[in-house]
Simulated scan of single mutants.
Amino acid sequence: MTNSSFETLDLNLLKVFVVLAQELNTRRTAERMNVSQPAISRSLQKLREHFADELFVRAQHGLIATPKAEQLSLSLPSILAELANVVDHHNDFDPAKLEGVLKVAMHPMLLASVAKRLFVALQQHAPDLRLQVATWGADTCELIQRGQIDFGLCLLPVEGSKELVQRRLWRQPIYVYARDAHPIGDDIVTPQDFESYATALIHVPGWSAARTEAEKFLAAHGVEVTIGFRSELPGSIMDVLRVSDLVYPSVTYYPPEDIPGIRQLQLSEEFKGLALKYDTGYVFHYRNRQNPLYLWLQEILVEKCRDEIFSIN
């Protein structure tokens, strides 16, 4: 592109181009950018005229990028992200001025210990910012790339696009839960106990299709569990524990006051041979890696949402 060509280009059109390249659909692009579909079509026509190329051609299920559009897609997103960071850094970041909705996807095992604390922290530091939490699912990585989810909290590593940044926040161990009157007399659970009593396990679509972290941990110690109940909802697991002799191994820490009728069991010495730590991660799109908001959110997550029993090492 020549200098004169650049000088006549509306930079807002490049924003439209980037989203179109991600969505390959004018309707979804319009929804993401909060404009009408005809407005996106008009912007696309201007882009075609400017670059003297069709850029995106219609196909049966949306649009297909031309070679020219694919070439532009390799560099434009990072260039625009850096430009946004340069502009943002000229402004003093003030969480108290934040508005709108912060959309977060969380692994179900983190909901109980993190969601409430994040809400309280945001109410304190960014009272006009609303929190919307979704369960981490099979399409979460794609939604983060599209900008429909701001960031995710899950167990690392995440298999997804190289466009996603994965930062470790803290490490946490395996916990075991059972009802107060469970036949396991003391608060120590052994490999034999897991063989004697069926387990309840969390199921995360797109995440634990094969085995949960707890299952893999127990298998590493030679324990093959019998699954008595599996659910996507941690609350339903607690309800089942209260009326059964199931045990629930999990990487979730539930504060005792939040789970009446349930007690936490300690793993016996037989389990100490392997590390009991799992990484909790902060996942977001690389375009936000220098964004002051995302850097601040990382600090909030570590300082306000990490239990004192978790390790940052």
Rank of each mutant, 00 (worst) to 15 (best):
D186M: 01
Q192W: 06
T199D: 00
E195A: 10
H221E: 10
I227W: 00
A178D: 06
R211N: 14
E224M: 01
K216R: 15
W207L: 08
A181E: 12
A214T: 13
D193F: 06
I188H: 05
T199S: 07
L233H: 15
D180R: 14
G222I: 11
V225T: 15
G222K: 07
E232D: 12
S208R: 03
T190R: 05
A209Y: 06
A214R: 01
S196D: 13
G235H: 11
G222W: 11
Q192A: 15
D180C: 03
A220G: 14
Y197W: 13
R230I: 06
G206Q: 05
T212E: 02
I188Q: 05
A198L: 02
F194P: 01
E213N: 06
E215T: 06
D186E: 14
I227T: 15
A200R: 00
V225D: 03
F229C: 04
T199G: 00
H203K: 11
T212K: 00
A219Q: 08
R179V: 03
F217N: 02
W207A: 10
P191W: 12
T226K: 03
R211C: 06
H203W: 11
F194I: 04
A181I: 06
G228M: 09
V189H: 10
P205Y: 11
W207K: 13
V223W: 07
R230D: 02
E213H: 12
F229L: 04
R211S: 12
S231D: 15
R230Q: 12
A200P: 01
E215H: 04
A200K: 02
A178H: 02
H182R: 08
H221W: 10
